[in-house]
């Protein structure tokens, strides 16, 4: 299992900027938004949590279709499926590798992007907390979408259509947590919901992903 994680991370690094690509995309989103809505700091600060969450969603989506597609094409998915490791474990590790290469950098870099977006000073802590709690769910759900579309030649667009609706609860509670936290309101409900969704998703969705992979390899 650890060997698989190391292999995937190594592949991400060797493929050229596995870590950097998501961040660069995030930066572009954050750069473009002020062009669209105007440079007033007040407006930007107000929409900052939403924009940062949307950026995280899209950055995560970008690299999803490669999670299984590459392994499917070169045959290593077949070999992994016949290897003495449970497929549920394989998909969980794949999701973890995806999170380490896309979600984690976003969590770490969020303060910088918050700065660019005039995020309110009270919101930084909540922004980082929300991203840290929410992005693992994005990666695991994305793995499910990738598992559904692994055999398809043009799965990218379909993948977005399948995965984005699943992101709605995480997005709502994640953004709401930041908004409430910044205004010193009660954060219990969104915090617990966000963490609960992530925990439940990590516990259950890998079984669905593994089932989908098995069907696709048939």
């Amino acid at each position: 299992m650890i060997a698989l994680l190391l292999r995937d991370l190594r592949l991400a690094v060797r493929a050229g900027g596995g870590f950097g690509l998501g961040l660069a995309f995030f930066l572009i989103v954050v750069t473009l938004v002020p062009f669209g809505v105007g440079p007033e700091g007040q407006i930007l600060g107000r929409i900052a949590p939403g924009i940062l969450w949307l950026g995280a969603l899209l950055a995560c989506l970008l690299s999803l279709d490669r999670i299984f597609a590459l392994d499917f094409e070169d045959g290593s998915l077949d070999l992994l499926a016949t290897a003495p490791v449970p497929l549920e474990g394989v998909v969980t590790i794949k999701a973890l590798a995806h999170w380490i290469t896309t979600g984690l950098p976003l969590v770490v870099a969020a303060p910088v992007f918050g700065l660019l977006m005039h995020l309110e000073s009270t919101a930084y802590f909540w922004m980082i907390l929300a991203l840290a709690l929410g992005t693992p769910a994005l990666s695991v759900l994305g793995t499910f979408g990738a598992a559904l579309t692994v055999g398809l030649k043009r799965g990218g667009l379909l993948l977005s259509l399948l995965v984005l609706p699943l992101y709605v609860p995480t997005l709502i509670f994640g953004a709401e947590l930041v908004r409430r936290g910044a205004q010193n309101m009660d954060t219990n409900v969104p915090l617990l919901m966000l963490a609960g969704i992530t925990a439940a998703v990590i516990a259950v969705v890998p079984f669905a992903s593994a089932a989908a992979i098995r069907v696709n390899l048939r």
Partner: peptide, 16 residues
Amino acid sequence: VGSVFALLSRYAVKFW
């Protein structure tokens, strides 16, 4: 999976 998330979204949206 979608059914669970559709239901979850329903409550998330209400809350939001």
